[in-house]
Amino acid sequence: MDAEIVKIILAFVVLINPSSAVPLFINMSQGYDIHQKRKAARIACATVFITIAFFALFGEILLQGLGISLGSFRVAGGILLFLIALGMMSDGNNPAKPNEDELTSDEPKDLKPLTGSAVVPLAIPMMIGPGGISTVIIYSAQVTDPMRLGLIVLAGLCISIFCYVSLMAADKISQLLGDTGLNVINRIMGIILAALAIEIIVSGLRNIFPALL
């Protein structure tokens, strides 16, 4: 596994950041039994994997159909990721992901199955949002070898499994880390994501302006 694939996996870990979905999942799943929680977690994580796989396989085709160059998309995606990183490092406000308060409803849970919220808002956009989708398209569009494209999809599968484990351990993670611990993790992830965003922006600028090489 070369450095580029490691970078892709790291980007997925930082962007999806299951710890950010832990408080929402705990709030959503209160009053439900373990079987319903597992089913909701499986649906959410399957949605994350399907989303990553779809945009990895067809993202470049979408760009070509819209007439958008890869360089331009890299710059736009990098800027979006940098804004997300700034939010993670400051007050936690993420321009591409809603916060828990925005997604919490006062509607009684018995009127709404838990699985109904597993896809939206838990999986999309809380776990995989515009930033994650942009990253998948950016990395997959620069891959020509089917084997390397398969590695991107495999990375998505690994992250999805990691998300499932995190959601099922949500109560323990929350008790162990607390709000302070989760905030610290989000800020560390934000710093890493900011560095990745700059790399993507620079790569896009070099694509648009070859003289920068």
Score class of each variant (00 low, 15 high):
residue 125 P to T: 08
residue 102 E to C: 06
residue 93 N to W: 08
residue 109 K to Y: 02
residue 98 P to E: 08
residue 123 A to P: 10
residue 88 M to C: 06
residue 117 S to M: 09
residue 93 N to I: 11
residue 121 P to C: 11
residue 107 E to S: 15
residue 104 T to L: 03
residue 115 T to A: 04
residue 95 P to G: 15
residue 89 M to R: 08
residue 122 L to I: 10
residue 106 D to V: 08
residue 103 L to V: 14
residue 126 M to T: 15
residue 96 A to D: 03
residue 119 V to M: 01
residue 88 M to E: 03
residue 101 D to Q: 09
residue 114 L to P: 01
residue 117 S to N: 06
residue 111 L to Y: 14
residue 123 A to R: 03
residue 94 N to P: 11
residue 92 G to C: 12
residue 105 S to I: 08
residue 114 L to T: 00
residue 105 S to N: 10
residue 112 K to E: 02
residue 105 S to M: 05
residue 111 L to T: 15
residue 98 P to G: 14
residue 111 L to M: 13
residue 116 G to C: 03
residue 105 S to C: 05
residue 89 M to V: 14
residue 111 L to N: 11
residue 121 P to Y: 02
residue 112 K to I: 03
residue 119 V to Q: 01
residue 108 P to E: 11
residue 93 N to M: 09
residue 96 A to G: 11
residue 122 L to R: 07
residue 118 A to E: 00
residue 98 P to R: 04
residue 119 V to Y: 00
residue 113 P to N: 02
residue 94 N to K: 13
residue 104 T to C: 09
residue 102 E to W: 04
residue 104 T to D: 08
residue 109 K to H: 05
residue 111 L to C: 07
residue 106 D to W: 06
residue 98 P to K: 12
residue 96 A to Y: 05
residue 124 I to S: 10
residue 112 K to C: 02
residue 95 P to Y: 13
residue 106 D to F: 10
residue 107 E to C: 07
residue 92 G to M: 14
residue 122 L to W: 09
residue 99 N to S: 09
residue 123 A to D: 10
residue 108 P to S: 06
residue 117 S to F: 05
residue 92 G to A: 07
residue 108 P to Q: 06
residue 115 T to W: 02
residue 121 P to M: 12
residue 110 D to Y: 09
residue 91 D to C: 05
residue 113 P to T: 00
residue 90 S to T: 15
residue 96 A to E: 12
residue 124 I to K: 10
residue 100 E to D: 10
residue 102 E to D: 06
residue 122 L to A: 09
residue 110 D to C: 05
residue 102 E to P: 04
residue 106 D to I: 03
residue 122 L to C: 09
residue 116 G to F: 00
residue 114 L to C: 01
residue 103 L to S: 06
residue 125 P to S: 07
residue 116 G to N: 04
residue 123 A to Q: 05
residue 113 P to E: 00
residue 126 M to Y: 12
residue 102 E to R: 10
residue 121 P to D: 07
residue 124 I to N: 12
residue 99 N to D: 13
residue 125 P to A: 07
residue 99 N to Q: 14
residue 97 K to L: 02
residue 116 G to E: 01
residue 97 K to G: 04
residue 106 D to T: 15
residue 105 S to L: 13
residue 127 M to R: 12
residue 110 D to P: 05
residue 115 T to E: 13
residue 115 T to G: 03
residue 104 T to K: 12
residue 105 S to D: 08
residue 96 A to K: 07
residue 101 D to C: 06
residue 102 E to Q: 12
residue 94 N to A: 08
residue 100 E to R: 11
residue 124 I to E: 03
residue 98 P to L: 15
residue 119 V to N: 01
residue 88 M to N: 12
residue 96 A to W: 04
residue 118 A to P: 02
residue 124 I to Y: 14
residue 91 D to Y: 12
residue 96 A to C: 11
residue 119 V to S: 02
residue 88 M to W: 11
residue 115 T to V: 13
residue 110 D to K: 07
residue 120 V to W: 02
residue 95 P to C: 04
residue 105 S to R: 13
residue 105 S to Y: 06
residue 104 T to R: 14
residue 110 D to R: 10
residue 126 M to I: 12
residue 94 N to S: 15
residue 116 G to I: 01
residue 97 K to T: 15
residue 93 N to T: 11
residue 104 T to W: 05
residue 99 N to R: 14
residue 106 D to Q: 03
residue 93 N to G: 09
residue 124 I to R: 05
residue 115 T to H: 04
residue 108 P to D: 15
residue 99 N to C: 07
residue 124 I to F: 15
residue 92 G to R: 02
residue 115 T to P: 02
residue 88 M to I: 11
residue 125 P to W: 02
residue 120 V to A: 06
